[in-house]
Each structure stands twice: as C-alpha cells, then as structure tokens.
C-alpha cells in the first residue's frame, strides 16, 4: 500500500484521548518513520508513563511494531529506514545518531515475537547481558543474578536442575520466559514486547500475561499485541494505531468500553482488522 501525498492528507487524523502522562518515562514527539519511499508512521505524539503497561493495538501493517522498534533503535538494522522526530527517555534523546545504542539497549530491553534464545545453555542465555555489560564481577554474583532473573521470569523451578542444557531445548512458552529473564537480567528501565505471545499456546500465554503484571511493578512495559483480550487484561493504557497514525490513546477500560474515535470502535467491534 503506497500512499501518495494526497492520500495522506485525506487520511490525516488527530489523535484523540490522553496522549500525555504526568510521570512520563518516555516522551515521543513528532515521530515520523519511513522505509525507502513508503512512510510507515505519521507524526506520533505520545507519553509512556513510569511503571505503566501500555498496549499498542491495530490492524496488521499499522506501524505499531515499527513504533516499538524506534524506542530502542532496533530500526537501525534496517538500511532503508529513516526516523525523524524526538523520543526522550527521561532526559536522554534517543533519536540522535550520536547516541550510543549499546547503553540505550541496556536501558530499554526487548522481547521479540518469536522466542529467540541463543543456541547456548540456559545459564549462558541469562548471563549474556550481565557479561557483555560487565554487571557482575564475580562468578557468585553472576550466579545470583541468573537465579534472580529466572525467578522473576517464573522459570527457576522448571530449569534449576538443567541450567547447562541448551536454551533451545525448552518448550516455546519456556523459551519466551527465558528471553524475558535474559532481558530483565540487565535491569532495564523499559521493556518492549513485540507480540510476545503470538506463537504460544493459551496456557503459556496466560503465564506470560501473569508475568507482565508482576513485572509492571518494577518496569515500564510497552507491548504490541494482536489480541484485544490480551491488551484488556495486561495494560493500563491502550494506543490504537491505524495506517501509521496514532488514532486514539486512553485508559484501556475506556478504549474497550467507550472508544472516543469511530475507527477504534470499528476495530474493537471487529468490523475490520
């Protein structure tokens, strides 16, 4: 779908709802993203509050994953991707070529759609982040960090006897929780989750959702999901994206019971998606 400038003008919507937060962790202003000729995100303004869980919903190709990947600069790996605008993490500007992505990604962790543990042992998977960032100076310290992270990801009891087995030998749901443990091992401030349950069965999904609720006490979490039920269950606020534009952002309850925008209503009632 390639939009001409005229189409864009036609599709210009103003974001409705509560875009801003009183205790913002992330401030996104005037964000525009394009891949080669195709613009994927149009002028998004949004605050993500401290320790809140915000869900990004919308039809496929609406730019919600692209938006998420801007926050830890994962879009840098795509050559044709151009990002304009400003994202501030506390007072640090993210969208600046001078910013070193290595410490940024230690502060903003990411969990991907498909569980992607390294082809190493469970222990090494969790210990990887602390090792490359030099967070543990002694072996015992590292052991403790691995255990804490696995406990917080709710995986410790299942894997404590086989920490040296490959991470890829776990089931899909366990692998995803291993990836979460790996992410939280470096104590990031923000965790980005890109459809973390889309390849999992309902039981594994329920476990991850429980985990998200627990993690929200300590972390700011932004989650992209295709499941509206999931958004309703885990998030405090919900942002609805449509064709690269942020249409509505409000309290989750509000979005799902009484949306302000007709497009949001059409989406949550299943008229398109």
């Amino acid at each position: 779908m390639n939009l001409s400038p005229d189409d864009r003008a036609e599709l210009k919507y103003k974001t409705v709802g509560e875009k801003f937060s009183e205790t913002p962790k992330l401030k996104i202003r005037g964000l525009n993203v394009s891949y080669a000729e195709k613009q994927a995100i149009f002028d998004v303004n949004l605050d993500i509050g401290s320790n809140e869980v915000i869900a990004m919903i919308g039809p496929s190709g609406c730019g919600k994953s692209t938006f998420l990947r801007c926050i830890n600069r994962m879009n840098d790996t795509v050559d044709s991707c151009r990002v304009e605008g400003s994202i501030q993490l506390d007072d640090m500007e993210i969208c600046d070529d001078k910013v070193d992505v290595v410490p940024l990604r230690a502060r903003v962790g990411m969990v991907f759609q498909k569980p992607n543990p390294f082809p190493k042992s469970i222990y090494d998977n969790v210990a990887y982040g602390p090792r490359i960032h030099g967070l543990a100076s002694r072996r015992s310290e590292l052991d403790g960090l691995v255990e804490t992270s696995l406990r917080r990801a709710g995986l410790w009891d299942e894997v404590k006897d086989r920490l040296l087995q490959p991470g890829t030998s776990l089931s899909g749901g366990q692998q995803q929780r291993l990836c979460i443990a790996r992410t939280i091992a470096v104590s990031p401030e923000v965790i980005l989750m890109d459809e973390p349950c889309s390849s999992l069965d309902p039981i594994a999904t329920a476990k991850i959702e429980e985990l998200i609720a627990e993690l929200s006490e300590n972390f700011t979490i932004a989650i992209v999901t295709h499941s509206m039920q999931q958004a309703a269950r885990v998030s405090r606020r919900t942002a609805y994206f449509h064709l690269g534009q942020l249409i509505e952002v409000n309290d989750t309850q509000h979005v799902f019971t009484n949306p302000d925008h007709q497009l949001t209503e059409a989406y949550i009632t299943g008229r398109f998606g």
């Binding site: 994962m74 290595v102 230690a106 962790g109 991907f112 992607n116 390294f118 982040g129 490359i132």
Partner: peptide
C-alpha cells in the same frame, strides 16, 4: 538467522560482540 542477530543487538551487544 535474523532472530539471533535481533536477540543479541536487543541485549545491547556491540557489532563486534
């Protein structure tokens, strides 16, 4: 696989790492 690259970069690994 790209997923392994994503995982490592997402953890904050440098290119050389």
């Amino acid at each position: 696989p790209q997923s392994i690259r994503d995982a490592a970069l997402g953890m904050g690994a440098s290119k050389m790492q």
